[in-house]
Structure formats: C-alpha cells, structure tokens
Design a protein around this nucleic acid. Structure first.
Lengths: 108, 108
DNA sequence: CGCTTTGCTACAAATAATGTAGCGTACTGC
DNA sequence: GCAGTACGCTACATTATTTGTAGCAAAGCG
C-alpha cells in the first residue's frame, strides 16, 4: 500500500471541493479510524494494548490508521511510548461522544 | 460481496461485547457511510443524485451502504423514490453535525 | 547476556471498492 | 402504442485495501 503520507487536508477520495468536512468524513470513514479514537478516549494505550482493544485488528491497518491520524494531528506517540490523543484529538472525540448515548438508544 | 443482511446490532467485526457503540462505530466506519448520511442531511436525494453528491462513487458500494443503512434504520427509500433519512437517521445526523464546525476549525 | 515489551514492517491470501455497462420498471410526451 | 428518459439496482473484471501471521530492531530489565 502506498504510504500516502500527506498534507493534513488530503483530498477525500476525489472530493477536492475544499470543504474540510469532506476530508474529515473520508478520514473517519476508514476502517478502524473511529474505533481507534474511541478506544483512546480515556487515556493513552500502547500499540499492542490498542490492538487488543480493537479486537486484534491486524497491525497493518492499525499502523496505517495511526499514521494517518497522527498526520491529521489527532493522535500522537508519547515519548514514553503509547499512543494518545492530542488536545485536538480529544476535541474531536468529544464531538462524537454523543454517539454513545445514541447507540444505546438505537441498539434495538 | 456477501449481502450480510442482518439484525440491526450486527456484530461489529468480531466485537460482540454487546456494546452497540461498537456496531455503530463499525457501520459508520465503512467507506461512504458517513458521507451518505451527510449528503442526505437536508432532504432526500434520488440514488443518482446521491451518487452525484458523493463524487460519483461507484453504484456498487453506494447500494451496499444504502442497504446497510436502511437495515440499521437510518435511511429509507421514499415511496415516490429517493432516499431520505428516517427520524432516527436525522437524529444520528444531528449527533455528528458538530463535526462540521470542528472540520472548519481543523482544516489548517 | 537472556527475556520481555515496544513500535513497526513484510507478504501472501482474502475481501471490499472502483469503473463501466446495462437490466427491468415506471413515467412522461406524442 | 411507442420513443425518450429517469429510477433503483445488479454484473463483473480490475484494482485497492484488509486480514492474518510472522518477525524485525531498539529499549528496558534482571
């Protein structure tokens, strides 16, 4: 897979409307992105702990997502090891935290 | 692709913790799911209009997502044609609408 | 040094998405 | 009735992404 590093607002799969919401929607709409942010919500985790929390998702994708998420400025690798949310990432997390309540209500 | 229809709270890729948030995170963390909900936010669209709004995403995935989203009860196919959000779907949409503001702030 | 854990990578096999074409069913206007 | 058009939806070969398993180099520790 191409490493596809890039600028923060990498174009969301062709959507270069300039609307950052599209880039965000595209980034979050990738497998495990949301889950990673979710699992990191209350404190940093080591890459392996994170993997554990994510149903043993393959390290390949996890690493890829983690890189993207870091480039986006939502996640960072702490100096003592372990991935954690940046202030911005924490902010984003708050943003869709209400999903939790929604999900509980939905479940049916 | 397997049609993988199913109960609403289909298990999120192995995560059968019973936490519906996982199912939701998994469903939304699929390509185009978030985008579809987003594009439907202010009114129903025909399948083709939706495709247009989603950068001409292939009808294959769109149809797949639409089916999943319908099974989840977020989207419905109106009698006169055209896809629209259900009340529940509209609710969900509201839930992550703040993302818009966040994205604007983020963009950098 | 041996043992363990860290972040991270390789790589083949499986699965999902893309792009293009087209089907069957309406609904027009004529 | 019969073209013309738009609808929801499907087929299918090509391409991209994910999975699963194995393993690396670096760091910490006894």
């Amino acid at each position: 897979m191409a490493k596809q590093a890039g600028s923060r607002t990498r174009n969301a799969r062709g959507s270069r409307t300039g609307r950052p919401i599209m880039a965000l929607l595209d980034l979050l709409g990738r497998r495990w992105s949301l889950r990673i942010l979710w699992e990191l919500r209350d404190g940093p985790l080591t890459s392996r702990a994170l993997r554990g929390a994510c149903d043993e998702a393959s390290p390949t994708v996890l690493q890829a997502r983690l890189t993207e998420l870091r480039e986006a400025g939502f996640v960072e690798l702490g100096d003592g090891g372990g991935y954690g949310l940046t202030p911005l990432g924490r902010d984003l997390c708050e943003t869709f935290m209400p999903l939790h309540r929604f999900a509980e209500r939905w479940k049916v």
